[in-house]
Nucleic acid binder design. Sequence first.
DNA 1: CAAACCATCCTGTAAAAACAGGAGATTTCC
DNA 2: GGAAATCTCCTGTTTTTACAGGATGGTTTG
Lengths: 207, 207
Amino acid sequence: MAVKLFITDDHYMIVEGIRSLLQFEKDIEWLGHAMTAASCMAFLQQQQPDVILMDINLPDKSGIDLCKEVKAKYPAIHIIGLSSFNQQSFIQKMMDNGASGYVLKNATREELKEAIETVIGGNNFLSPEAVTTILKNEDSKIPVITRREKEVLLLIAEGLTNHEIGEKLFISTTTVDTHRKNLMAKFEVKNTASLIRMAAQFEFIKW
Amino acid sequence: MAVKLFITDDHYMIVEGIRSLLQFEKDIEWLGHAMTAASCMAFLQQQQPDVILMDINLPDKSGIDLCKEVKAKYPAIHIIGLSSFNQQSFIQKMMDNGASGYVLKNATREELKEAIETVIGGNNFLSPEAVTTILKNEDSKIPVITRREKEVLLLIAEGLTNHEIGEKLFISTTTVDTHRKNLMAKFEVKNTASLIRMAAQFEFIKW
DNA sequence: CAAACCATCCTGTAAAAACAGGAGATTTCC
DNA sequence: GGAAATCTCCTGTTTTTACAGGATGGTTTG
């Protein structure tokens, strides 16, 4: 029996590319595609695929959040994250939210087929590059920061001094400094510049 | 006569997607594709297409830099930037470096055809979304920084102090400080934290 | 309930960055 | 050739961070 496949990606060319790559596969039945998280959920009310290839960046919400929702409602569906970013933070979040696999957009036909077969078999699949990323950054984990620390971090990134942040949050300058100190310890850096760089890299800062 | 088309993109699915979208167009002759900037340049020594669809993120160098090189060597080639990012900074840099157009990866077949025809006709083409972005962010310009300033900027982001940077680049600490000062002036910020944030936003810093 | 964690605050010192206001030398571009 | 830009370096002063080493009260949780 053919694997029912669905794609959620707002990039028309990617959808076309995957369709083109898999069009002659008899074991794969193409159910269609959605360009937004909302239309993906709407489709699932009608039909349930076996596998969803899901982009990480969607116009209405992140694929990471959508992944969680889909798995909550339809636990039987296998989700494979799809992204051009070979970034550990994304991969980790996606897998944490119930994804069974993660494939990069420069994957070959064979890799794509292997990914689909693997997750159908109940196992997890990661692109070789993604595996490398995970292994490489095994030790350097993404720090867990508190709500207050994040608040302070964003204000630092905006260019406020400790004093200004203190006034804004109604706390003492020394408290802000302590938060900054703890942030630097958690990120394992020794000054603000690299703190902000790391925070941007790990996507604590968005724009 | 058919338009000779070449693609430089490291995302296999995108290449497949575009090929699939344009396969039945008689006016378009598919010359092939390159996955890296280096192999693109190598190909151009053999054959020159009329139009190159060029991704902004390539493994060996940015499409923005590659664009500049290609236009310097082969001014007759029309380059269309290709990206999933609808970001003004990218678009502007690409056009500054000689690109004739900019298309998003969620473009339809019609949009793609129109883009190719337009640039062949000697005119510029921008995806409708890209036009909106440009118009919206008209005022917030991306600073133009020098090679040396960029060098210093990256070292600042890595967490080095003025003194350490000076040692690394064999220049005085005060010179580094001057560069930092000028960078802050150009980015219109008043401290390092927001400098790094802005630099990350405008993608001067990569990872 | 005790251990962890969190947020708050403190003193003090050293280092670094921010700010002002130059100036000379070289390269680049018109 | 000359103007503009770039890179280099300087002397100061003030502000801000970085670093050390605490302490207190509150909340969460095994």
